[in-house]
């Protein structure tokens, strides 16, 4: 049978009539047409939103420049600063606790594994808002506990506890992604399990999970907004709390837009970094 050139027996050329007798389009024509329809739908949707929006109302309620100007510099020196500080504390705390939980979950000792599994399942299964609320109000009453840093401090501890559950799963996956030959090589050289973990496995695991960990960081930045439920002293306010207060003071929603922009200024470079890291990692290996 000839297979090197010409038509292959049994498959009709693309322009031959189909089973229904209708002339079939070429595959490339069909693809171009489909893409054209997608563009048309997109343009229509944009126009529709443009027509339906009440631009006058938007301008006065959301884009009031005087209201926006009034928020500076307070929004930067207090709110953005606090958001960043809370994020860094929660991330470092979550990383430390998450690492311990990941090692417990991979431990040969059963009870460690069970505790870690229960912890991770519990705090990944609960809304972060509820946990923050609980730590700010229920736990202090139940244990007669005065949280360091007041209710903002209690909320932060809750944020650390929740993020540790997610970070633990990420780190565990990273540890398991290190090829077993690495552990075998280290052990065959006489290194103890602990040194093997510290010098060989963890450095490689953290390299593997840098993109998902950066994602965790982005999520954490946004989750600091949940701290508002704890209620905060004026100087402790982060971006969302600050914006909400400004909204009720000014009876205008522009502060929300300004806060949103502030979040994006912080998060967008990080999400781009994640994308870059993922591309870079894929090429690296």
């Amino acid at each position: 049978m000839r297979t090197d050139s010409g038509t292959v027996p049994g498959t009709a050329p693309a322009t031959m009539p189909g089973p229904a007798g209708r002339p079939r389009m070429k595959a490339s024509t069909r693809r171009r047409l489909f893409r054209g329809v997608l563009y048309a739908v997109f343009v229509l949707a944009v126009l529709l939103v443009g027509f339906l929006a009440d631009w006058q109302a938007i301008r006065t309620n959301f884009l009031d420049l005087d209201v926006a100007r009034e928020m500076f510099p307070e929004i930067v020196v207090t709110a953005v600063k606090n958001t960043v500080i809370y994020t860094v504390i929660a991330f470092i705390g979550g990383l430390a606790l998450g690492l311990i939980l990941a090692l417990m979950k991979l431990s040969p000792v059963g009870p460690y594994r069970w505790v870690a599994t229960a912890y991770i399942e519990l705090f990944r299964g609960l809304p972060a808002l509820l946990v923050i609320f609980g730590f700010a109000f229920a736990v202090p009453i139940a244990f007669n506990w005065r949280p360091p840093g007041g209710s903002a401090g209690a909320g932060l501890i809750a944020l650390i506890i929740v993020s540790a559950a997610y970070i633990a799963e990420t780190i565990r996956a990273g540890i398991q992604a290190v090829p077993p030959g690495q552990v075998e090589a280290a052990r065959s050289l006489g290194m103890t399990p602990a040194w093997t973990m510290v010098s060989v496995v963890l450095p490689q695991a953290f390299r593997i999970v840098t993109p998902p960990l950066t994602n965790e960081l982005v999520i954490l930045i946004k989750d600091t907004s949940l701290l508002f439920i704890a209620g905060m002293a004026l100087g402790d306010r982060e971006l969302t709390t600050f914006a909400r207060d400004a909204v009720s003071q000014q009876a205008n929603a522009t502060p929300l837009v300004v806060a949103a922009l502030m979040y994006l200024i912080i998060t967008l470079p990080l999400t781009r970094l994640v994308a870059w890291l993922e591309r870079h990692n894929k090429r690296g290996r």
Partner: peptide, 15 residues
């Protein structure tokens, strides 16, 4: 004992 036994793997397993 393992420090006295050198091992070389098919896949090298360098760090």
């Amino acid at each position: 004992v393992r420090t006295r036994i050198g091992m070389v793997f098919q896949q090298f397993n360098l760090f």
